[in-house]
């Protein structure tokens, strides 16, 4: 129901983003979802990978500052209004969304969104009750590989 997302601290230098990604690629770790939040000074690279434990320790050993965070993948219908319905429901329950990004599924007509809720457990319970499909981690990760 929840995924572990890996965040990596990056200085905002050109070409720099490639370094942690290259490292994971060399180790045969596929990036399943990615978002980069950046400011003029620094960036936070957020990654979804299948073997997050190994990815985390590889990055840490290479000297990156890394953090694991629980995020919630939600299945939304891939048409206008699909996302709005989730946002409305979260808003009604007063669930704070810190950020969100898309996660590509290879199923036509469906899309998964990764939500970083302030309270992931309450979010999962609420969204499930409200009839949304909160995705299981394993089948989700399997679906994209």
């Amino acid at each position: 129901m929840k995924l572990q997302q890996i965040s990596v601290f990056l200085e905002n230098r050109s070409g720099h983003l490639a370094e942690p990604l290259d490292l994971l690629a060399r180790e045969g770790i596929n990036i399943l979802g990615l978002s980069l939040a950046d400011t003029a000074e620094f960036g936070i690279l957020r990654l979804i990978v299948r073997d997050w434990g190994r990815a985390e320790s590889l990055l840490r050993e290479a000297g990156w500052v890394v953090k694991l965070t629980e995020v919630v993948p939600v299945d939304v219908e891939d048409h206008p209004g699909g996302l709005a319905a989730v946002l409305r429901s979260a808003g009604e329950a007063d669930l704070k969304i810190e950020y969100m990004y898309a996660f590509s599924l290879r199923h036509p007509g469906r899309a998964a969104l990764i939500f970083r809720f302030a309270e992931p457990d309450r979010a999962v319970a609420h969204l499930t009750r409200a009839g949304f499909r909160v995705l299981e981690a394993e089948p989700l990760l399997a679906a994209v590989e």
Partner: peptide, 18 residues
Amino acid sequence: EVTPEVFSDQVRALEDVR
């Protein structure tokens, strides 16, 4: 240097530390 203790996945939290 950013330490694991102050690092966050959220931009705002890091901006606050800064």
